[in-house]
Computed example of a mutant assay.
Amino acid sequence: MNVLIVYAHHEPKSFNGALKDIAVAVLTEVGHQVKVSDLYAMNFKAIADRADFKEMLEPDYLKYGIEQRHAYENDALADDIKAEQEKLRWADLLILQFPIYWFSVPAILKGWVDRVFTTGFAYSKGMSYDTGGLKGKRAMLSFTTGDPFDTYAHNGRHGDIDIVLWPIQNGILRFVGFDVLPPFIAWSAARGGQEIRERHLVDYRGRLLALERTEPLFFHLAEDYNESWRLRPGIEARTPGQRTMARDECVSLRNAQVLQLGSSLLAE
């Protein structure tokens, strides 16, 4: 299996660095081919702008998505974008390694997504989700948190981790066609002691050794939705994040109904 690790941490001696290193060691040890895009070490350009295109359709007014497609179709993308796309073509599995920043990925990793997942290559009209441009490949998040698991429970202060990850796992990875594996989460790595970090490394080694046997997360296919892209009647939301949001939507609706009833009683 060919594995691409996109690593986003500024400090090589960080725990994210340790997770990246053990992934390279374990996967190589069992015969997989591994490449690493170390975004900070590469000084990867995170800003999407005119410099991403060697030629433009409309030089006087930048419409980034249109220029992306034109450049992709005419071999006019910047060399660093083309190099990352070649790695993705080569890879069977993509691992994103990062610390959670503000309930999302670090800016340099988001910039990698913005610039590398170009229209025409990763998605386009009629080419998204189960028909995305990277269909047939798998992807997994491996990340660290500052706070423990309980704060990311459905009733935790930060909210359900499935909702936190929805924009990344569904809005980025699944949108471009990946089969998304369950994430590896190193809870409280930033504040935990050495014993906790060592346990995370042991657990991650186990996850890595089981990658080929790991079932992807469930995502609804296109036929589960109606013409308005809502789940058809009788089909229950099962995707992590979507399932949780559906539950919360029911709670919000019930609360709204209670408020409406209260208003009606007051009016009477």
Rank of each mutant, 00 (worst) to 15 (best):
H158L: 12
R138S: 09
L4Q: 01
A237P: 14
L39R: 01
G132W: 12
G132V: 06
L141T: 08
G120I: 08
F121G: 03
N255L: 11
S14H: 03
N155L: 13
K82E: 14
V26Q: 06
L62Y: 07
A189K: 09
A153E: 12
V3P: 00
L141W: 08
P240Q: 00
R115C: 13
E198G: 10
Q242F: 02
F53S: 07
Y64S: 05
T28P: 04
D203I: 09
K63Q: 09
A237S: 12
Q257G: 08
R247F: 15
R69C: 10
A186N: 04
A91D: 09
G17A: 00
P148T: 03
R174H: 14
A48N: 04
W102Q: 08
T118F: 13
L231P: 01
M1L: 02
V34D: 09
I172D: 01
W112F: 06
F98N: 03
R205I: 09
G126L: 11
R138M: 08
K135L: 13
H158F: 12
A190P: 07
V6A: 01
R232Y: 03
I5Q: 07
G177I: 05
H154W: 13
K35S: 15
L94R: 00
E73F: 06
F219Q: 04
T28D: 00
I66R: 00
R115H: 14
E236L: 14
A189E: 10
A222Y: 12
R197T: 12
G31Y: 04
I161D: 00
H154T: 11
